[in-house]
Design a protein around this nucleic acid. Structure first.
Lengths: 208, 208, 208, 208
DNA sequence: GATGAATGAGCCTTCATTCAT
DNA sequence: TATGAATGAAGGCTCATTCAT
């Protein structure tokens, strides 16, 4: 009864991360990964079924973790009463983002894979999916609190989507620059202000 | 006098655009392009020399046009005297961006190729290059007019780079949404306000 | 009634020589030849039928000229009476070779093509063919004058073939070195002595 | 433990030898080799990395063996004292050549590949290299023993190069004739005498 | 369960030759 | 007759995946 050789699993994952990060999913070569991990292509298939499976194994826990955290944040916010929501939106968003950044830095490589190396996998739309959810929730909320520029039709859901994408991408860009966690947080706090001010121009255009 | 069969050139270009847009440069197959264009792989080589050449033929004029326009804009601005610069920065930037949007819409597919399908070609860093130039020029300019948060070290060039990337990407995101030109312009005007306000939080943080 | 454009024929030949010399018959590209000759591939086919035909056109006159000269030399020798033959063999061979060298130098490129670039054509065995004839004639002659080592079976026709090949190749080697005609002749005269002495060891082994 | 299917390695080598011998390196087709060997092109790559690697695998050991043997022979000779050298040159050369012939016959196909099918590989100059070495050593030696025709400038190194080439080629020609090993040796012994006598005409022209 | 050789489709590219203009 | 675009077979090579050992 042969047992899976200890350490191989981990080595494959480590080498796969590197290969995927360097070349992207499609251009990554399983043979190269196997060779670097000092094992055989076959043993990748035993453990991960196929190339997609390998990528998924690396990335899925982080996807789920991120999604859970994200939904928890949304959930918590939506359970607040209306007044609290309005009063704390800024600080809550900021604190939440801090937690998210921590999570991303705790799973840095995996997150980078999702960001820039997932083309060709079923995760290639992960970021878009998150943005979609964010847009949906927030847009509903803005409508709910009767935001004028939305009910007035000046800010469509599509435009809001673009803005949120811009926001997320600016955060991701910080990640891509591979700065230290603290520096990143400082920058992202600045970005929050930046985008908050930007959002004001959208939702309260009369002030501009 | 041997002539190229009429329409083949156009068909190849059209099918190549589609193939490149769908799969990206690397994953695109010349066989598929040739088959869709109802011709032979060889006839691609007759016209475009090789795969890179085909992509280049599609994209290069647009790259040059865009670069020229972009540099002309920068040049014109830098020739204004200091006072005019400060006073008209906002409106000038906005008008310039309108021209750029027009150019991009005039060459829509080509621009999308540059945006999302150029990995593996010598154009893969085109957007980054534009951003780099924009950052360089503008950062110098801000320093020149003695922006406090820059001389104070709060806004590093790196952070500014992130912000500009965010700005450009939001514009590109509009393009990606494939909306009508007019809608796009309207959105992008809004985005300009959005980012201007955001930039104020960076350059004049004392107000926030 | 369109006429063949003047000078094209010559230009194709010139460029073909260069291309064949540089790359050999198989690796030579008709498109390169046409391009260098400032004409079209088609015009090569009009004039020379195909790739082989082009090579042949360059080389065939020289092949024939050389063959004629060679056969004339053989013929003349065979018409001498036995005594004259024996007495003048050395000087006659030497003078003949001088004439041949002149011929080769008069058609230097063509000869080099035959020598080193004819693989893949019907001329690839041209040299062997010449050697075969030389062997046949000379061997018969040696037998005729009742050479002991031949009738004694010590020198087979095959061995004689090898020796003649060696002789010819040493002459060709001089050609390959691309020295001046005069220098070449001087060297080849030395080579004649060299091989004459060598031949003596074969035909009169008792002296060695 | 995945094993290479038995006999495939050998079959590929055998078919490759045949294909290379028949068509030369460049014109040989891996597809044809694979088909003849009843396997897939991929399995050639598994074993030999690429086309060059396949050729190299066949030929390299022989190249090294021959070179080692050759250099050992040169070395041994150069270690003799001057008098012994002069006295035994003939017999030593002859014995050495016998050993070389044995080696070539022990690796007949490989040697033929080197001889006539290596164009386009890194072995294409192997024979010239051997000749170059031989010329260098021997020319030095002749100078050293103060050969008159060398110091007199009658025999240049270039001419000597031509002569040595002629000698080697005559030996190779025997190989090409694919005669039995014994016959070959007998012929080559005769060739040695032939060329020795020839060399005398060069180095001691006053006797002729 | 581990191995890695085998597979064969697919990649870009080159070429001699044909043939419509 | 001149042109050179069109053709399609063939080239070397890579790869994810399968499967016998």
């Amino acid at each position: 009864m042969a047992k899976q050789i200890e350490g191989v699993y981990e080595r494959i994952l480590a080498c796969a991360k590197e290969e995927f990060l360097t070349k992207g999913f499609k251009d990554a070569s399983l043979r190269v990964i196997a060779a670097n991990a000092n094992t055989s292509t076959g043993s990748i298939y035993t453990r991960f079924h196929d190339k997609q499976g390998l990528f998924q194994q690396i990335v899925e826990p982080v996807v789920q973790g991120l999604m859970e955290m994200y939904l928890r944040i949304q959930e918590t916010f939506s359970r607040m009463d209306g007044k609290t929501q309005v009063e704390n939106m800024g600080s809550y968003t900021s604190a939440s983002m801090d937690d998210m950044i921590d999570y991303m830095y705790d799973h840095f490589d995996e997150f980078c894979l999702l960001l820039d190396a997932s083309y060709g996998t079923r995760f290639q739309n992960f970021m878009e999916e998150m943005i979609r959810i964010e847009v949906e929730y927030t847009y509903k909320y803005m409508k709910h609190i009767d935001c004028q520029s939305i009910s007035g039709g000046e800010v469509t859901e599509e435009f809001f989507h673009i803005v949120v994408t811009s926001y997320f991408n600016s955060v991701f860009e910080v990640i891509r620059h591979r700065m230290s966690r603290e520096e990143a947080k400082r920058y992202i706090r600045l970005l929050n202000k930046y985008h908050m001010a930007g959002c004001d121009t959208i939702f309260y255009p009369e002030r501009y």
